[in-house]
Nucleic acid binder design. Structure first.
Lengths: 360, 360
DNA sequence: CTGAAAGCGCTTACAG
DNA sequence: CTGAAAGCGCTTACAG
């Protein structure tokens, strides 16, 4: 490893001159000739700065701790990490990952270790949207919560706009001409369930339809979803179903097949998640709303770095196109999901109001 | 942040005494009384060592670079990272992750950055088993390849035993009493395809059956798998199929349903991957072989740390039970997959030879 | 415009 | 058994 000293010696200048030049702080401090000499020497020696030494001195490691519960085990939530990583790279930061496996002891130790490594800030991320208690040790440091909301509404939090998801999915069914739109939801008491249902209700109302309690059914992921789906389709004969997620949509597919209902013709289905392995397996293709995981990760790092460097959010563009828009209100940022059109919902030819506007 | 100096001052001893004691190197160097005083003072001050300073001095960062292509986007391959993380934690190392997105420029930059942070070694991981060119910059440093094989057979590599997977899956069908066992494989020229097919052949032979070329069919993941599956089941009427992966198994399910064949009764299916989202959706449950991703990640870190610390492989136990056994021959380590029994293959009552042995 | 010096927090040979 | 000193590679105020 070549050091500043090596460069200084070879170029016949002082170490500090080298430091100044290589950090671009040589304006009016070093003559252009020596500056160039220093740069050339550094290049010829393949100089790489030693971040450890720099951190020791500056107290800035350009490192971010990525603390998660078990995010890593869910295929799509993992995209939070990808987005975070891309934003970090663009801003000159590294991610140190730490999986707590939902174990509070592990979490405490993990955070302590991360601190020893002098991370500049923390991402506190989760595998699905919930309200969380941010540990006190993190409250004092730059921290952004991802795919969750700080219970104390104190730490900046980024999460999907569940209401919009429910509203958009249901509106899609309204626009497909469905008249009996069911909601096939979750029995778990989670944020997504409550808010998506609220979005469904609002969309129904805005579409001039009345809510029918018989068309609102909950199910548990693997236990009873098949039977409930069958019962719903058989007894209530909806012509459209907003499915809480793709796994439940699979149950609806089973039921529809059993009842000889044509999916995308007799009955339209719009779901949430866009899990590649499920959509790969369902025929016809499932129209579903993708959660903005990548976007949330990207945005979270942008915000975190803004906090760390005490400046406005840095202007960086993601390599892959952002499909979601962000809405910031104080410390809470919601992200919109985007609908992935396949064939499980009757096609809509007429443009949406926004599309119509654009075409003018 | 309290430093050694703070402790020294408060305890009225020298900084080096503190360092010695806190690092457990005070044997015959510091009196037990002062040692205890130092430990107490450190605890009361909530001392946490500064890894940056330590690294600067010792040239050991206790940090590992985790470089991947796009591992993060495939649900199960992500478990490599989980396994690596657990092993790292148990051995006192941190993982710095770096996704190259299959971009060589990004990879080069990423590795350079990781070097600036003085990682002690590299994990070079992939989302599926292949032969890879390890960059020259990594060849000079402690490196372990995960879920891939170094083209030059020089860098230690850990990957699944594909032959065993093919052999085990096919043998499972033989033991189910199947007489016409098909292989529904891949058209891609990848290691898994070649070796699983070889395993299939060997298992057939060991089971006293002759190979029938008509029963060996390849397909592309999403393009033609449905038609090929239908054709295979219709024209060849196999009573057992070894499916290259779960996505293809889904095509076999479609075909069987269409032909009114009972899965797990008329036709047995054994697959590979155990992707949660696919198995969640298929009825009846899919019997499939899980790839040992978690185990590979864990084992890779064990090996890497052994190389870094120039000692034998550390004795650490994973929290979650290892389902796989490792077979080491020189720098190549293969890991066995394990079969997850569900209902898509006719049940086998007679014990395997090994099971029979155990019961004695 | 340039250089010498101090110091970040730690470890480790060295001298007593 | 203990302490003083040097130094890892860097940055930054300070003096010229």
């Amino acid at each position: 490893m070549t050091s500043l000293k090596d460069i200084a010696k070879k170029a016949g200048v002082s170490v500090c001159a080298v430091s100044l030049v290589l950090n671009g702080k040589d304006k009016n401090r070093v003559s252009e000739a020596t500056a160039q000499l220093i740069r050339d020497t550094a290049a010829s020696l393949h100089y790489e700065p030693n971040m450890m030494a720099r951190t020791l001195k500056t107290n800035k490691s350009h490192t971010l701790g990525f603390v998660t519960d078990e995010i890593i085990t869910t295929p799509n939530a993992v995209r939070i990490m990808l987005g975070a990583q891309e934003a970090a790279r663009k801003l000159g930061y590294m991610l140190i990952t730490m999986n707590t496996n939902n174990d509070k002891t592990l979490e405490r130790q993990g955070i302590a270790t991360l601190k020893r490594y002098h991370v500049d800030g923390f991402l506190y991320a989760f595998m699905y949207h919930r309200v969380v208690d941010v540990p006190d040790t993190l409250r004092k440091l730059p921290t952004v919560v991802v795919d969750a909301e700080d219970a104390k509404c104190d730490i900046p939090s980024i999460y999907p706009d569940e209401f919009a998801i429910g509203y958009d999915a249901t509106t899609r069914l309204v626009r497909a001409g469905c008249k009996r739109i069911a909601y096939f939801g979750s029995e778990a008491d989670i944020i997504a369930q409550t808010k998506r249902l609220a979005g469904y209700r609002q969309a129904l109302q805005d579409g001039g339809m009345r809510e029918n309690p018989d068309l609102i059914v909950g199910a548990t992921e693997y236990d009873n979803a098949d039977q409930r789906a069958l019962k719903l389709l058989k007894e209530q004969q909806p012509d459209g179903v907003f499915s809480f997620n793709d796994v439940r949509a699979a149950s609806l597919y089973m039921a529809a097949n059993q009842l000889k209902l044509g999916i995308g013709t007799d009955i339209s289905i719009v779901s949430v998640d866009n899990l590649p392995n499920i959509t790969a397996v369902l025929r016809p293709g499932l129209t579903t709303i993708e959660l903005p995981h990548y976007e949330m990760g990207f945005e979270a790092v942008r915000q975190l770095v803004a906090i760390i460097e005490q400046r406005n959010k840095p202007q960086i563009e993601p390599n892959q196109p952002f499909r979601s828009s962000f809405e910031t209100r104080d410390i809470l940022t919601t992200a919109h999901g985007s609908i992935i059109e396949r064939d499980s919902a009757v096609a809509v030819s007429s443009p949406t109001p926004e599309e119509a506007l654009k075409q003018d």
